[in-house]
């Protein structure tokens, strides 16, 4: 890397001296796991025991920087949260960058810095990485793919298919913040707000609860693309149950409510990047809420509804999600059509 260069050139993806310098100066100076610094083709991690849990996610968000975070923070949180939703303690993450020629080096440094900070916040480490540079126009600034590996207790029965009638539905905080923030950050709406994305690693909030109440927490999901509505519909299908939620119990930031009302959007369909949906036995739901609220990331946690058997309500003989209001009125909350906002994560 030319020390005076301000932009990424194709040479930095060529695999030669320029690539080595870029990796050392931008990444190794910030992400300092010993296995990464060895520079081998792959990293070796010790297995503390338990089932291995593996996940991967790609991030193509535009704009890459938004109030409350950036694509680097998002990549770390997204992968940590995916592991967390399976009750897994992260062992390590790997990250792959696809960078468009001409991307500013100081922006790449900012992203690396934010990844390092977020990883340390979450108590996880980046153990392997890859960098590619593509011609101008072949990517939009920067894309990141990150994968993660973690371990979970072998007897954990956690997953979308384990919801049972009578279980309570919990959300760990307000819905739609990330989607609304990114939408406004694009500047196309001519609206301003002081909203910030909720992007955050959830492992420290959630894993202790999974360890404390293993047999009581049945489903954990992070309601990212498609929002709460898509997540609950997926759970209803996987578990072959219906889910009934109460509109007035769902925590929604008043600004998100205002903006979505103005634009004709529904916050229940907007992405979250620092919230979990939890389906848990009613015996422990109050304890869970109490403990979630002790952590700033879970301060708005609420029980929003319950799981019920398929009743043929609304003329449907399959699991549906419905939402009730203060009048006693009820409607379905469908999966959502294909027109969610593109490139929000």
């Amino acid at each position: 890397m030319n020390p005076k260069a301000t932009q990424i050139r194709l040479a930095e993806g060529g695999g030669g001296e320029a690539t080595a310098q870029l990796i050392q100066q931008v990444f190794w100076s910030r992400l300092r796991h010993p296995e990464l610094l060895k520079g081998n083709d792959a990293s070796v991690l010790e297995n503390p025991g338990g089932n291995l849990v593996v996940t991967i996610d790609s991030f193509v968000i535009t704009p890459w920087s938004f109030p409350g975070g950036d694509i680097g923070k998002l990549a770390i949180c997204g992968t940590v949260n995916d592991l967390t939703m399976m009750g897994a303690v992260p062992l390590g993450l790997t990250v792959g960058f696809i960078i468009e020629e001409g991307f500013a080096i100081h922006d790449l440094e900012r992203i690396a810095e934010s990844m390092a900070f977020t990883a340390s916040q979450a108590g996880v480490q980046v153990v392997a990485g890859d960098t590619k540079v593509v011609n101008k126009g072949a990517a939009d600034g920067i894309f990141i793919t990150s994968s993660g590996v973690g371990t979970a207790a072998p007897d954990l029965h956690l997953g979308g298919a384990y919801a049972r009638p009578g279980d309570h539905v919990i959300v760990t905080g307000t819905m739609g913040d990330h989607g609304a923030t990114v939408l406004l950050a694009r500047g196309e709406m001519g609206l301003q707000s002081d909203l910030i994305s909720d992007v955050a690693p959830l492992n420290k909030l959630i894993i202790p609860l999974v360890q404390k109440y293993p047999q009581y927490i049945r489903v954990l999901r992070d309601p990212t693309r498609g929002g709460l509505a898509a997540t609950l519909n997926e759970i209803a299908r996987q578990s072959k149950v219906s889910i009934r939620i109460n509109e007035n119990s769902i925590p929604i930031n008043p600004q998100v409510r205002g903006i979505t009302g103005l634009l004709g959007l529904d916050p229940l369909y907007l992405a979250n990047e620092g919230k979990a949906v939890m389906i848990a036995s009613p015996e422990v739901s109050c304890f869970l809420i109490h403990e979630l609220r002790e952590n700033p990331l879970g301060k708005d946690a609420a029980i929003i509804g319950e799981v019920c058997a398929i009743t043929g309500n609304f003329g449907m003989n399959q699991g549906i999600v419905s939402i009730g209001n203060e009048m006693g009125g009820e409607r379905i909350l469908p999966m959502g059509s294909g027109e969610q906002l593109p490139r929000i994560c």
């Binding site: 009730g324 009048m327 409607r331």
Partner: peptide, 8 residues
Amino acid sequence: RKAGIHRL
């Protein structure tokens, strides 16, 4: 429809 008023 959204509030389910017709069903009430």
